[in-house]
Amino acid sequence: MMSKLVTSLVRFILLGVVFVFLFYPERFHVSFSYPGAPQADNLAIRITKTFFWLLVSLEILRVFYYGVVKSKAKGLLANVVTLAIPLVLVLILLEIVFMYVPQSHEGVLSKASQIWWYKYWKPINQLGYRDKEISSDTTKKTVLVIGDSFSAGHGLKSVDERFSDRLEKQLGPGYIVYNLGVSGSDTRDEAKRLRAFPVKPDVIVLQYFPNDIERVGREKNVPLVGAEPYADLHGPLTTLVKHFYLPNFIYWQLPHTSFNTFEDFVKKSYTTPDVLNAHLNDLSDIVAYRDSTGARMYTVFIPFLFHLEKSNGYTKPVADWLQQKGVHVVDVTEGIRSIPDKERVVGKNDGHASASVNAAIADRLAQEMKKTNH
């Protein structure tokens, strides 16, 4: 029996090396590269980790059998081991289960959100957008929807639920709508991507959210406290939550940065002339692109979904400026207000717009475009 335990010890050492390589590859200066990284969590790597945990479980059972059951060990240590082994195996089982539980989350911060991204973030076209490929049909009017994660449909399992795809259906066969939404994008980035897109638009739809001013606010040193993920963790708990699925899932079910913290940042940014003027300068690049193409431009202001009036008040200077530049500002507040609070967002941990909100945006936008003969 002693030889069995010794061989188990050797196997545990080998499994330890594999453990560090799989869960802490940075220790070996290794990084796993795969399509969708780092937003997506690769299935092949998760399957490999699953087999690893199964091997660990088998080795634990083997040690328990030869070290306690077969040797008929008694005493305090044997009793503690007998109680601890089932607990450890249950934790391993839960860790395996939560490797395959998708849950959308703002900013793709959690491991569950990376699983969600891997499963649902499709199709991806050749330009890297979550959208169809560019059509060779030049007879249709082209609508470019530019924006951030709200345009891209973060939290929506199907692109058919997005306002851009719904808009295309409502406009009819004479139109084709391309979605240039990118999670985390801001106004400056959106202007660059519009200019780089190979199809010139007949219509531009700018989707605007109050956090579009965030980059400029940070550059102008407007304080945003507590926004960094995992900032409230310390010591060994940090590495445990960052590297393992079960504790990571539990961590993200708990509240962290409050809305009030981010609201203070937004309010300060929009009421600081230096910040607002810099932001309007970024927006002027998009307006200039509109002018160069002769396209008609619409801006859809999506408010904070549980604080409609507040966010509309913050972004009013931007809406007024755009109207002065001849941009059609589309107010979707009333459509969103008619939707019950809990049905406005895609999930508990994800405040992005639900399919119902996207439908309301598409309806309002189509109405405005038809009214202005587009």
Rank of each mutant, 00 (worst) to 15 (best):
M1V: 13
M1A: 13
S3M: 13
L5F: 06
T7D: 03
V10W: 12
L15H: 07
F21N: 04
R27W: 15
F28E: 05
F32A: 05
P35Q: 08
G36K: 02
A37M: 04
A40F: 00
L43Q: 00
T50G: 05
S57Y: 05
R62H: 15
V63F: 11
Y66L: 07
V68P: 03
K70E: 13
S71I: 11
T82H: 07
V90Y: 01
V90F: 10
V90H: 07
L91N: 02
M99Y: 02
S104K: 05
S104M: 09
L109W: 09
K119G: 02
K119Y: 12
K122E: 12
P123D: 06
N125Q: 03
N125T: 04
L127A: 08
D131H: 08
K141R: 15
K141Q: 14
I146D: 00
G147S: 10
D148K: 05
H154S: 11
H154V: 13
L156D: 00
L156W: 01
K157V: 11
K157H: 09
S158A: 05
E168Q: 15
K169E: 12
Q170C: 07
P173V: 07
I176A: 03
I176E: 08
Y178E: 03
N179C: 03
G184L: 04
K192H: 09
R193I: 09
R193K: 15
R195H: 10
P201F: 02
D202F: 06
Y208N: 02
R215E: 13
R218L: 15
K220F: 14
V222H: 08
A227C: 12
H234Q: 13
T238H: 14
H243P: 00
Y245G: 00
H256R: 14
T257F: 11
F262H: 13
F265N: 07
S269H: 06
Y270P: 00
D274C: 03
L283M: 12
T293Y: 06
A295H: 02
R296I: 11
R296A: 12
T299D: 06
L305Y: 10
F306L: 15
E309I: 08
N312G: 09
Q323I: 06
K325M: 07
D331G: 01
G335W: 11
R337N: 11
S338I: 07
P340T: 11
D341T: 13
V346A: 09
A355P: 03
N358T: 02
N358G: 06
R364F: 05
E368F: 06
K370T: 10
H374K: 12
